[in-house]
Write a protein that binds this DNA or RNA. Structure first.
Lengths: 212, 212, 212, 212
DNA sequence: TATGAATGAGAATTCATTCAT
DNA sequence: CATGAATGAATTCTCATTCAT
């Protein structure tokens, strides 16, 4: 112990973030209503009362969790689509790989689950999720597709649907991971799925002979 | 109280189904923990106590909702894959159309949302959902893909991943509908998405010229 | 089956008594508040609604149980004290034997337990119990003692206390039976206790040498 | 609300005992099932929720009441039998006096009533009562009797029955007090009963002439 | 009479929120 | 700032009582 430099002082600024981290875990596990502030406080290593020094209500804490957790990942979401100049043939696998990485390393899947569960109870959050995450990510993808269509590299069709054709299976894989693997379902190798799927999306399932 | 209108009638046989229907609505809207039995009873047109004539606890009611709602759709899930003899080129759009129909007309999406939300609190239900619905549907698709691969109509690759490549975007569309449309997101035309996507999955996004 | 003589007809008059019998069991086991009319009805072999054809409320049924159960034993209580002409030395063992018999064969102990438990909630019943059972039985005993004192056979002293000296241990034995034996206490042989005790009460515990 | 009077104070240490005291009163009055936690909380001067800070369930509170109430009296129970060296002729009245004192000043009678009432619903408590109170007290008395028999001061016979011969009437008197006096029965002077009875138990009811 | 489905007031229990320390 | 005892509104669950059949 260094006198005059108590160790806990250092934590002061970190408290809110620690609480949000703990809250994310508990909310993701139990859902908003079933999560108990007692548990969150315990997991954050603070007293129940301390939560109220940083967040006015349980609801505000929940909203902070969604917003704060999503925030640092937004840059990554945007970064998914750089090197737009590459031919779609090369660009698409890169996008897929980055998306797979993002989905396996960030907390986005946990938040997604929470948003799916509570969209009716917290429409504001669903809106944030839509505007800041889904719309943005889909927008980037859609833009890439549109550009490729303009260059004649991608077949015509609603570019938003095309974007869903690319991203959909990976998102399914993420939900599989969150929901079904914990109860015993056979695990899915997300990067492998991403790679096989993007190739399928590019050239199709059919063999040349089967195309008619 | 309207005189001449009995406070209640004997509905022993119909009651459980009515209650389950009402409960599905409320659980899907609010989630398990936030759903109030008062609301369920009111929506079912019975008293709170009547719920307990048919279901021992709130939890048991919730489980009954998931099981009973999923049950009648299981046949439809299996029916999705008939006419297995058709060439994959013709079969795939039919499967997609049927899947899109199932997802837009059944209660499966609502149940899916509930299962996603409560998988940690009710692992048994997640298991039921996996075994009875997801595994079964994916199994049918995977089987179809495998057969087509054996006939040389579909490119090699993990048939389970191929199945996810086909079904994933439609499931995303369903979640979009359940979660984001109610808070103002631009609606998705699910059958149109299904049609465009299945074509994409069959022949790929790339134009002939862009293939290298 | 004798046509025209349906078997159940015979039961009509017996119903109230059957219900009271069933109710006595359940009330004695669970206590008034914890006893469920469902259980009583089931044990009586009737529907719950049928109880209300004979008794207006749960409380009234409880009161009927106490009154009706006590009633047929009252004669027996009085009979305990006949042959008042015998010398106390011979009379007392007879009284004790009769009392022991009454306490081991009647439902009085079960009712006693109920009255003890619910005296605050049902003061009327405690009063009935006091007036019809305790007072009467004690009165008979007290009278016998008084007469014997008048004849110089019994030492002076409050005859009511003397009566308690005689009856007390037997009543304790009954409670022991009701309360402690069911949870594993060593059983008490009530008639044996009665016999040894009455002798003790007559001649005392001390040996002649120990008297001083 | 009186301004300046805090709604509550920290009483962590004192609270459990205060609650148990209040609970004893209410349970003794109403019985376990009919006692309302609202009433207990009000009588303890705390909120309903506060009960749950110290006791997990109503049942646990009830058990704590029985255990905690009995505990401080156990020493007194053992103390009843000291001076074992005295001749039984002198010892017995002392024991009786002490027993009478214990029964009139402790909460044992109230607990006894509760145990009698709930022995079927809470067999564990009946067992505690038997092992810690009844068995112990009766054991002490039985030991004293046995010793006196060995010294030739007390007539032969089952010493446990002899112990009941001594204690029974006093216990009856206690129940009389608890159950019948509140509904108007003529009060019993317990110490007087104890004194007269112990003399009776020592030398018997019969006058010398009436002994045959 | 008899049934048992239905009711609804009541009670135990939980937990977000407050606030004396 | 931090704590955690205390609160009390809200919710699940029970069960005596009613009443259509």
């Amino acid at each position: 112990m260094t006198p005059g430099q108590p160790r806990w002082r250092r934590r002061k600024d970190a408290r809110p973030a620690e609480i949000v981290t703990a809250a994310l875990e508990v909310f993701a596990e139990r859902g908003f209503a079933a999560a108990r502030l007692d548990d969150i406080a315990a997991r954050a290593g603070v007293s129940k009362g301390a939560l109220y020094l940083y967040f006015e209500t349980k609801q505000e804490l929940f909203e902070a969790v969604v917003r704060d957790t999503v925030l640092p990942d937004l840059d990554a979401v945007e970064q998914v689509a750089t090197n737009l100049e590459l031919p779609f043939r090369q660009l698409a696998p890169m996008l897929a790989a980055r998306l797979a990485l993002l989905l396996t390393t960030s907390s986005l899947p946990a938040v997604a689950k929470m948003v799916i569960a509570e969209s009716r109870n917290f429409p504001d959050l669903a809106r944030v999720w839509h505007d800041q995450v889904v719309s943005r990510a889909l927008g980037v993808l859609t833009g890439v597709v549109k550009a490729a269509q303009a260059r004649g590299e991608v077949r015509p069709g609603d570019p938003r649907f095309h974007a869903l054709s690319i991203a959909g299976p990976m998102l399914m894989g993420v939900l599989w991971r969150e929901v079904l693997e914990p109860v015993g379902a056979e695990p899915i190798d997300l990067p492998a799925l991403a790679m096989q799927h993007v190739e399928t999306a590019l050239v199709g399932l059919l063999t040349p002979e089967a195309r008619a």
